[in-house]
Design a protein around this nucleic acid. Structure first.
Length: 422
RNA sequence: GUGUCCAUAGUUCAGCUGGUUAGAACGCCAGGUUGUGGCCCUGGAGGUCGAGGGUUCGAGUCCCUCUGGACACCCCA
C-alpha cells in the first residue's frame, strides 16, 4: 500500500461517523443548557504559548508535542490541549472586559507525538469547558456537573468522580517540602521511576503504579490535609455544592496534576471499563494561568475529556446511539426511460428534503434491488415504460415486503407524509 | 524513549516439524428468476503471504534489518 494514515491517526469511516455525530450533538446540547458558548481556535499556535502554559521543562514540552518550524523559521506546535489556546484567545480579544465571567466550550482535535496505546492516539479529540473570571467554588461544581451531565445524557453508567485540592502558591510549597522530607528516609526503597520523580515532580509518586511505592506512601502527608485557610474553605464549599447537587464523589488525596499552574480543585472522572488509560475526563482550577500567559490575574476553572475513550466505553456498554440515516426511497429503473425519470424525480425529492438513491451503475433490476436492500432504503419503487404510461407505481416497503399501488402524482406527498412520520 | 506480542484475499482467520498451483468463512460480482431485495443453489473475480536482505535444492513457514499495528511502561495535556 502506497499511502496509509500516519502512525497514531485514524480514519473515522461511515460505519462509525454517525456515533461521533451523536456524541458531538449531545455535547453541544448539554453545553448550551449550561450556557457555555463555543470557541474555535486554530489547530496550531506558537510553540512558546504551550511551553509557557505547560512548563518549559516538562516532558510534554520537551518531547511529546508536534512541533515544527514554518518557512519563516517560527516554531509552531499543533495544539496538545485547548486550555492554553482558549486563554490566549481570552486575553487577545479582551473577552473579560465584556463580562466578568466567560464560559466557553470546545470540541476539537488535539495532537501529541507519542507511541500510541489504547485510548491514546496522536490525533485525538477532546471536548471541554473553561469558566474564566470567577473563584467561587460553585463554578468548580458547575463544571463538574456539566461533564457528568454529558455522560449521564449519553447513558454511560458506572463512572467515578474523584476530587482533590492541590492547594495554591501559599500552601503548596511548604507541603511539598514536608512530603519530600517524609520520603527521604525511604528513598532507596522507591522504584527507579519514582527516584526520578523525587527531583522532577515528587507529588507524582503518590499515583505511582508500583506496588512498593504505594505501600511507602500509604501514610504520607497529603496536600488536602495541609491546605491554607482559603484553600480549605474552598474545598469544603465545593464538597457542599456537590452534595447539594446530589453528585456522588470520592475525595482522593492522591490525585495530582502534572502542571504547576493548577490550584485548589483537581478532579478526575474514571471509568473501570477502560484499560490503563482509564480517565474519561480531568479538570481543575488554574487561577495562575491567565496571568502567566500575560493577562491580568484572573481565576479560572475547566475540564477536558477524551472522545475516543468515551466512545470506547459506550461501545463496551453497548450504549444505544442514533441509527445512521438511511435513504427513504430507492428508485430502481427497469429501462432507459425509467432511468431518465428517476434522475429527474430524485432531484425534486431531494429538494423537498427527502433522501433518495437511484441506480448509477446501470445495473440489472435484481442488482438494484439488492443494492436497495444493502443501502437499507425504507421504500423502493421500480419505474419503467409501463409505470410511466399508466402513471402508477407500486411503493414497496422493504422491511415488510408489502407493496401498494399509488398514482405517480401522489408520490411526493406520500413520501413527505412518511418522512414527517419518522 | 523502553518492553512484550503481532503482520497471509475487502474482512476475520487456517496453513502440522520448510516440500507441487496458498485455503475457508463472510463480503463483493454474475447467473438460477429475460421487471423485484433478504433465504437457498451454481459460477466468478480478488493474494508481489507487510518491505528488504539472508540460510536452503526449495521459505507463507527458519534468521536479520526495517516499516506498520496492538498492549503496557515513561509521561499525562
Amino acid at each position: 500500500m502506497k499511502f496509509t494514515s500516519i502512525k497514531g491517526t485514524k480514519d473515522i469511516l461511515p460505519g462509525e461517523s454517525h456515533r461521533w455525530q451523536y456524541v458531538e450533538q449531545t455535547i453541544r446540547t448539554v453545553m448550551h443548557t449550561f450556557n457555555y458558548r463555543e470557541i474555535r481556535t486554530p489547530a496550531f499556535e506558537e510553540t512558546a504559548l504551550f511551553a509557557r502554559g505547560i512548563g518549559e521543562l516538562t516532558d510534554i514540552v520537551g518531547k511529546q508535542m508536534y512541533t515544527f518550524q514554518d518557512r519563516g523559521g517560527t516554531s509552531l506546535t499543533l495544539k496538545p490541549e485547548m486550555t492554553a489556546s482558549v486563554i490566549r484567545a481570552y486575553i487577545q480579544h479582551n473577552l473579560g472586559e465584556q463580562q466578568p465571567l466567560v464560559k466557553l466550550y470546545y470540541c476539537a482535535p488535539m495532537f501529541r507525538q507519542e507511541r500510541p496505546q489504547a485510548g491514546r492516539l496522536r490525533q485525538f479529540h477532546q471536548f471541554g469547558a473553561e469558566a474564566i473570571g470567577g473563584q467561587v467554588a460553585s463554578i468548580d461544581a458547575e463544571t463538574i456537573a456539566l461533564s457528568l451531565e454529558i455522560y449521564r445524557k449519553l447513558g454511560i453508567k458506572p463512572i467515578t468522580l474523584k476530587i482533590n485540592s492541590v492547594g495554591c502558591e501559599v500552601c503548596r510549597p511548604p507541603y511539598k517540602e514536608k512530603f519530600k522530607k517524609y520520603l527521604q528516609h525511604v528513598y532507596n526503597k522507591l522504584s527507579e521511576e519514582s527516584k526520578q520523580r523525587f527531583d522532577q515532580n515528587p507529588l507524582r509518586i503518590l499515583d505511582s503504579k508500583d506496588a512498593t511505592d504505594q505501600t511507602l506512601t500509604q501514610n504520607a502527608p497529603l496536600m488536602k490535609d495541609h491546605l491554607c485557610k482559603e484553600c480549605d474553605r474552598h474545598f469544603a464549599q465545593l464538597q457542599s455544592h456537590l452534595t447539594t447537587l446530589q453528585i456522588p464523589f470520592i475525595v482522593d488525596g492522591r490525585i495530582v496534576r502534572g502542571l504547576d499552574y493548577y490550584t485548589k480543585t483537581a478532579y478526575e472522572i474514571i471509568s473501570s471499563e477502560l484499560g490503563s488509560q482509564d480517565a474519561l475526563a480531568g479538570g481543575g482550577r488554574y487561577d495562575l494561568l491567565v496571568e502567566e500567559l500575560g493577562g491580568k490575574s484572573t481565576p479560572a476553572v475547566g475540564f477536558a475529556a477524551g472522545i475516543e475513550r468515551l466512545l470506547m466505553v459506550m461501545e463496551k456498554q453497548k450504549v444505544k446511539t442514533n441509527n445512521e440515516l438511511m435513504p427513504l426511497l430507492y428508485i430502481a429503473s427497469a429501462d432507459d426511460r425509467g432511468k431518465h425519470w428517476a434522475l429527474e424525480q430524485a432531484m425534486q425529492l431531494r429538494r423537498a428534503g427527502i433522501s433518495c438513491e437511484v441506480d448509477l451503475l446501470n445495473r440489472s433490476l435484481k442488482a438494484q434491488m439488492r443494492d436497495a436492500d444493502r443501502q437499507k432504503a425504507l421504500y423502493v419503487i421500480v419505474v419503467g415504460e409501463s409505470e410511466l404510461a399508466q402513471k402508477k407505481i407500486s411503493l414497496k416497503e422493504m422491511s415488510s415486503g408489502t407493496e401498494r399501488s399509488i398514482s405517480l402524482n401522489d408520490l411526493m406527498t406520500e413520501l413527505e407524509k412518511i418522512h414527517t412520520g419518522i
